[in-house]
Design a binder for these strands. Sequence first.
DNA 1: ATGCATGCAAATTGTTTGCACTTCA
DNA 2: TGAAGTGCAAACAATTTGCATGCAT
Lengths: 156, 156
Amino acid sequence: MATHPTIGESLRQEGYRLTPQRMMILAIIRDSSDHISAEEIHQKVRQQYPFVNISTVYRTLNLLKKLRLISETDLGEGYVRYELLERGRHHHLVCRRCGESFAFEHELLRPLQLRLLKEYGFTADVDHFAIFGLCQRCRPAEEMNDVRKEGQHGAA
Amino acid sequence: MATHPTIGESLRQEGYRLTPQRMMILAIIRDSSDHISAEEIHQKVRQQYPFVNISTVYRTLNLLKKLRLISETDLGEGYVRYELLERGRHHHLVCRRCGESFAFEHELLRPLQLRLLKEYGFTADVDHFAIFGLCQRCRPAEEMNDVRKEGQHGAA
DNA sequence: ATGCATGCAAATTGTTTGCACTTCA
DNA sequence: TGAAGTGCAAACAATTTGCATGCAT
């Protein structure tokens, strides 16, 4: 049942050690369908092996984050949740001025997705999002046309 | 130049006192075009009146939050940023099954908007968003049709 | 005047770090 | 074997809270 030996491998291939603690932490993140907090991970690890320290959990999470194997999602609960990064999954930013299209990481959509679910019970389709707007290059040009500027929010 | 006497009024009408500290804090949030942190607010308040304590800032922010006058945005910087709630501004959730449409607060879109700007330099058009998906009521029905379930992320 | 609000300091909570010890490669 | 990893406790930073005092209403 070593469903994703890959993740652990990645670690080792980057020159890091694959310790039992790390294996347990990885397995727990992988097997939790939802986002999971450091504290929850710690609880679950301790069920298997009670001497693992919370700092090890944090250190491992930071390592995995640095290697871009997991992502952090902050929902303003006072702590942070983690999940395996869905690598490659992305969406599109489309510039309404030049028509150019740019990819953005799926991960950026997750907090919105989760909040819509939690606060509105709404399951957003996030298979493929396209967001319109102005790309970095076109914004200055657009602002030149545009006489009215920011700063007078309540004026109307 | 009391541009928004309304905000302070709201407080008083709810039976809360309008103290100088609260007035200063409100003014600072209002006059800061961007999101602002508790610490930044504290700094600015102290420039005017050096004896205001950080706990007063936090207490005021919590009050304003409770009254839904401001919103909290957590961008994972290790602290939280605040801004006036754009009351009434909202977007739509459209159920792809029953066609029903639900409103959701503009505020939910802000973290995404800010991250797209910071990380991709992309200025998203967020005047009016419509997100498709399944509403609370339709999800169970949909899941009944749908034999394949969550839990096998990497299967495809 | 009286009770809500403030200031101060101490407590809390999530996370990080220094250091001695352990263990994987 | 020896550097990388761990456990522990102490440090940290953001936020909250208890309590005595002070000021809007």
